[in-house]
């Protein structure tokens, strides 16, 4: 499964942030996005996940091949760990949660209400959803935030397994996850130019009236 991004231009809050972003990721490859705060890493990741409209350019394949792990863990505190995972398993049509529980070392916590978990445990629960989704392309926004050293190594191993199975990963992270075949894309050269800003201020249709 390849991920191809061609000549992408993006805006956030009506301001163009990125333009001319192009890259191609083949199966088993991972790409790390780098750039200072506000460079547009999250905007780019959300656009590729299909949560944000693009000003120009193409992304292939569509959002139905992509699993997105955002800053927020999307964990319901009132439900137990197993209930949280069972819900997402049935949304994605995945048969069981045992493998995800095991790989993320969550078996011991399965009947614990998620509100009693630590930040790192919640993070692992949020990342376990990637395994349940069964999707080949992982989009990860700072996946290791609040993970301890051991869990970071664990997640690095899961990521390596995912890539070895022919998956693709695109992530914004500052931590070395020990991945073998990794490329780094610095977003600084793609900062929006005057042309990009012109695109952003052009009428973008009915939706913009509400923004």
């Amino acid at each position: 499964m390849d991920l191809t991004v061609t000549d992408l231009a993006l805006a956030r809050g009506g301001m163009a942030v990125l333009s001319g972003v192009s890259f191609r990721l083949q199966a088993c490859q991972a790409l790390i996005l780098r750039g200072p705060n506000g460079a547009g890493k999250t905007t780019l990741l959300r656009a590729i996940a299909g949560l944000q409209p693009t000003l120009a350019g193409q992304i292939s394949p569509g959002a139905d091949q992509i699993a997105y792990a955002a800053h927020a863990d999307a964990v319901k505190g009132a439900l137990t760990v197993a209930e949280n995972l069972c819900f997402w398993a049935s949304v994605y049509g995945t048969p069981g949660i045992e493998r995800a529980l095991e790989e993320m070392h969550l078996q011991g916590l399965r009947d614990r209400p998620a509100q009693n978990l630590s930040a790192g445990q919640k993070r692992r629960l949020g990342l376990a959803r990637l395994l349940l989704s069964g999707r080949p392309i992982w989009i990860l926004d700072e996946p290791t935030v609040s993970l301890d050293a051991e869990s970071t190594v664990l997640f690095g191993r899961i990521l390596r397994d995912h890539l070895a199975r022919g998956g693709v990963a695109l992530m914004a992270t500052h931590i070395d996850l020990g991945l073998p075949d990794i490329a780094v894309l610095d977003l600084a050269p793609f900062r929006a130019t005057a042309q990009g800003i012109a695109l952003a201020t052009a009428p973008a249709g009915f939706d913009e009236a509400f923004l």
């Binding site: 959002a63 927020a72 999307a74 319901k76 997402w88 949304v91 049509g93 989704s133």
Partner: peptide, 14 residues
């Protein structure tokens, strides 16, 4: 929306 579930539902196959 606050805990990110809505983002996940929007990208889920439903």
């Amino acid at each position: 929306f606050e805990d990110g579930t809505l983002d996940q539902l929007a990208t889920a196959p439903v």
